[in-house]
C-alpha cells in the first residue's frame, strides 16, 4: 500500500503540489484525475521517484522513499513499476528485451529472466509478439509491453501516467484490462493518472480529484457517486435533467442513486409495492462502474406515503440525493 502525506512541490514559484495527501490500499486501484495543470503529472513523477518533492512523504508499505539516494533509491524504484506517459520502449530492443530491462537492472540471471519475461508476455496477452520490435507493434500493444515491463521486477506499486491518452477507445479497453489483471492476479497497488473519467469508471476502486495542487475529493468511487455534490458523481452518472419534468403531475420529485445488482434490479418495484405509491422514472439512467451496475434516476412519486417511500429507499441503501419537490433533504 502507498501513502502520500502533505506533498508539496513548486517550480520557479509555481506551486504544482500544495499539500497533497492520499492513500491507496494494497491491491486497489486509485485514479488521480483533475483538470490540466492540476499537478497530476507532478504527483506521478514524485511517486515514480523522478522528481523530489519539496516537502512531505511518500510511504510504500510504511517506508518513506522521498529522500533516498544511490542504491537504496534504485532499490525503491524497483518497488514501483512505472508506465510513463507516451512512447517509452527501447526501439532497438524486442518486446521481450524491453520487459527484461528491469530484471537486468535487478541482476536477475538469464534463465530466470527469460521465464519471468514469458510470464509477463502471457499476462499482457502478447506471447506471440515476444520477438517483435516496438515499430512492429500497435500503440496499444506497445503500451501493454510497457505495463509488462513495469511489472517485471515484481513491484508492489504500479504507477501509470495517462496510459491511454494516445489510444482509441477499443485499444484503451485492452490496456485497462491489463492494468486490472495486474491488480487481480499479482495483487499490486495501482495508481493511475488520467484526465479520462472513463478510466475511473472502468477500473478504479478509489478516486482522487486534484485541483490546483490540492486534493479536493478523495474516496471510494461507489461512495462518492452517492454524494450529489461530488465531482465524481456528476462526471460518472447519467444526467437526470435531460428532459424537463412536469413537476405539477407528481406529489414528490427526487433523484436517487442505486448501487449494485440488488438495488438496481429490485428496490423500486419493492418500494412501489410496499408503500402503495405510483413511481415513475422521469429521467436519468443506468451505467456501470467496473462490474457494478449503478443507476441514477429522477423519480416522480404519487401517493400519500411518498415521503416514507423515499426514506425507505435511502435506508435500504439507495442514496436519495435531492428532493426537487416536497420537503428538502429527505433522509439525505
Amino acid at each position: 500500500m502507498i501513502t502520500v502525506e502533505n506533498l508539496t512541490k513548486s517550480f520557479q514559484g509555481v506551486n504544482a503540489l500544495n499539500g497533497v495527501t492520499l492513500d491507496v490500499q494494497a491491491g486497489t486501484v486509485l485514479g488521480v484525475v483533475g483538470p490540466s495543470g492540476a499537478g497530476k503529472s507532478t504527483l506521478a513523477r514524485c511517486v515514480a521517484l523522478l522528481e523530489r518533492p519539496d516537502s512531505g512523504a511518500i510511504r510504500v508499505d510504511g517506508t518513506d522513499i522521498t529522500s533516498l539516494d544511490g542504491s537504496a533509491l534504485r532499490a525503491a524504484r524497483r518497488q514501483i513499476g512505472v508506465v510513463p506517459q507516451g512512447d517509452s520502449l527501447l526501439r532497438q530492443r524486442t518486446a521481450a528485451g524491453n520487459i527484461a530491462l528491469p530484471l537486468e537492472s535487478a541482476g536477475v540471471p538469464g534463465p530466470q529472466r527469460r521465464s519471468r519475461v514469458g510470464e509477463l508476455l502471457d499476462l499482457v496477452g502478447l506471447t506471440d509478439k515476444a520477438g517483435a520490435y516496438p515499430d512492429q507493434l500497435s500503440g496499444g500493444q506497445r503500451q501493454r509491453i510497457a505495463v509488462a515491463r513495469a511489472l517485471a521486477a515484481n513491484p508492489s506499486v504500479l504507477l501509470a501516467d495517462e496510459p491511454t491518452s494516445a489510444l482509441d477507445p477499443e485499444t484503451t479497453g485492452s490496456v485497462l484490462t491489463v492494468l486490472d489483471r495486474a491488480r487481480a492476479e499479482l495483487g499490486v497497488t495501482v495508481l493511475v493518472v488520467t484526465h479520462d473519467m472513463g478510466v475511473v469508471r472502468k477500473i478504479c476502486d478509489d478516486v482522487a480529484v486534484l485541483e490546483q495542487g490540492r486534493v479536493v475529493e478523495h474516496g471510494k468511487v461507489l461512495d462518492l457517486v452517492g454524494d450529489a455534490g461530488s465531482r465524481t458523481s456528476s462526471a460518472l452518472l447519467p444526467a437526470v435533467d435531460l428532459n424537463p419534468v412536469n413537476e405539477s403531475s407528481y406529489d414528490r420529485v427526487a433523484d436517487v442513486v442505486l448501487v449494485g445488482f440488488a438495488a438496481v434490479g429490485a428496490l423500486l418495484p419493492e418500494v412501489a409495492n410496499r408503500f402503495g405509491v405510483e413511481l415513475n422514472i422521469v429521467g436519468g439512467g443506468l451505467t456501470r462502474l467496473g462490474e457494478t451496475p449503478v443507476a441514477r434516476f429522477r423519480l416522480g412519486l404519487n401517493g400519500e406515503r411518498s415521503d416514507s417511500a423515499l426514506e425507505w429507499i435511502s435506508e435500504a441503501g439507495g442514496a436519495v440525493q435531492r428532493s426537487l419537490k416536497g420537503p428538502q433533504g429527505v433522509a439525505a
Binding site: R78, P84, R91, E104, S105
Partner: peptide, 28 residues
C-alpha cells in the same frame, strides 16, 4: 527521447547501465 531514458531510470538501472543499454544502444 527523455521518456525512454526516464523509463529506464524508473526500472532502477544504474547510470552506467543506462549509458550502455539505453543511450548508446538506442543510438548505435
Amino acid at each position: 527521447h527523455v521518456t525512454v531514458v526516464e523509463a529506464a531510470i524508473t526500472t532502477g538501472a544504474s547510470t552506467l547501465k543506462i549509458v550502455r543499454s539505453v543511450l548508446i544502444r538506442e543510438s548505435l
